[in-house]
């Protein structure tokens, strides 16, 4: 097999034109997903069954089905209903990007809420008891003690989820979006050279993953600065 380096040089800039869309998908759905996750987390730890139960069902459904299936249901399934096409959400759902962001948000929200819950459960009781002993209310305990400690505890697992979200954005190419993967697939279909194109695409994703890892490493070190031992 000959490996055509020229082809890579020609097609890399084309693929990189999709970076904007890939990052738009990652950042918008990552941000919205985090907000959703916090809502779900609060519902889960509220101690009220009518909040806890729906959140549990939601998480079960979205973690229990493949994200590709969710994307297809949202993109191809929803518009089958007249009501959806007449609704105010249609301008968003009409666009493939809107559908992809919705699917990724709903999916990552479910995963991240469980990651955050793990962080909350990991906060030692002693800290909270100390807070109560100082006269802090349950709410103050949560805001000043649980939240910061849980964030630090959840961070390594959360960075994992951001990385897998980056890779999930590639699925958007199945619903006509020209992200990096979508562009690569079109180039492959035109040049019939899957190895060169997909291998260079894989390397581009790896570079971005490396960047995300480093970024979270910096945040982790910052949040854990009080934990470092002296000497």
């Amino acid at each position: 097999m000959s490996f055509d380096l020229n082809l890579i040089a020609e097609s890399l800039p084309l693929m990189l034109m999709g970076i904007g869309i890939t990052f738009k998908l990652l950042i918008v759905s990552g941000f919205l997903g985090l907000i959703l996750a916090i809502c779900l987390l609060l519902m889960r730890i509220s101690g009220r069954w009518f909040l806890n139960f729906p959140a549990q069902v939601y998480i079960y459904v979205f973690r229990g089905t493949p994200i590709l299936v969710q994307i297809f249901i949202i993109y191809y399934g929803l518009p089958q209903f007249e009501a959806v096409r007449d609704s105010i959400f249609w301008p968003i759902l009409r666009e493939p990007t809107g559908c992809a962001i919705l699917a990724l948000t709903l999916n990552t929200g479910a995963y991240v809420s469980e990651i955050l819950r793990g962080g909350v459960l990991g906060v030692s009781k002693g800290v909270l008891e100390a807070g109560s002993a100082l006269g802090m209310s349950a709410r103050q305990n949560f805001i000043y003690l649980t939240a910061p400690i849980a964030t630090r505890l959840a961070l390594p697992a959360y960075s994992n989820d951001v990385i897998s979200l980056l890779k999930s954005t590639a699925l958007a190419s199945t619903i006509t979006i020209a992200d990096m993967t979508g562009i690569a697939r079109t180039i492959v279909a035109d040049t019939y050279a899957p190895y060169e194109i997909f291998i260079s695409l894989a390397i581009v994703y790896m570079i971005f993953t490396f960047g995300i890892q480093k970024l979270f490493g910096v945040i982790e070190r910052y949040l854990g600065r009080y934990m470092e031992r002296e000497g």
């Binding site: 191809y76 518009p79 089958q80 096409r85 009409r94 493939p96």
Partner: peptide, 11 residues
């Protein structure tokens, strides 16, 4: 198939 679907859906 998706072509016909999205034509019907108005996309």
């Amino acid at each position: 198939e998706p072509l016909y679907l999205d034509l019907q859906n108005g996309r």
